[in-house]
């Protein structure tokens, strides 16, 4: 009789045990998958990279240096479009011409050229805010 009762108790708990086992199995599986996930943490994409890419692209198209050697920072600035952001340009050698914003949280991208047809180094600064 004791045996039947013993067996009876466990028969009633059989469903609970199956559920519990399933939960344990899922926990093990999820834990394993989390472990397999790469421990890579990626830093966010910075808008300054976009600035570099814009200036590099204009140089590859052969448009950048003409603006710089002629001092036409306004023309270069109007050539650039960054949706959602304001921007300004500065050309610097010994001194700088252009507009440097007096604001907080301004990103700046710098592109260097050695000149166009003669040696005349400049750094082109693209400010984005």
């Amino acid at each position: 009789m004791g045996v039947h009762k013993y067996n009876g108790v466990f028969m009633e708990m059989k469903g609970f045990m199956h559920t519990f086992e399933s939960i344990i199995a899922v926990i093990i599986l999820i834990g394993f998958l989390i472990f397999l996930r790469s421990n890579y943490v990626s830093t966010p994409y910075d808008i300054t990279y976009r600035g570099y890419e814009i200036l590099e692209d204009l140089d590859e198209k052969g448009e950048l240096r003409d603006y710089v050697v002629s001092g036409d920072w306004i023309g270069l600035n109007s050539k650039i479009n960054i949706p959602g952001y304001n921007h300004s340009i500065e050309f610097c050698n010994q001194t700088c011409i252009g507009y440097k914003p007096d604001k907080e949280n301004v990103w700046s991208s710098v592109y260097i050229i050695g000149g166009k047809d003669v040696y005349e180094p400049y750094q082109i600064k693209l400010y984005i805010w």
Partner: peptide, 28 residues
């Protein structure tokens, strides 16, 4: 230790310098 993948502006500057050194040499 987490492996941090950094997006860095160094590669842009590197490519820029690589191109301009050659250009300045030609101008020289």
């Amino acid at each position: 230790e987490n492996i941090v993948v950094r997006h860095s502006d160094l590669k842009y500057l590197y490519n820029n310098i690589e191109k301009e050194y050659t250009h300045v040499f030609n101008l020289g």
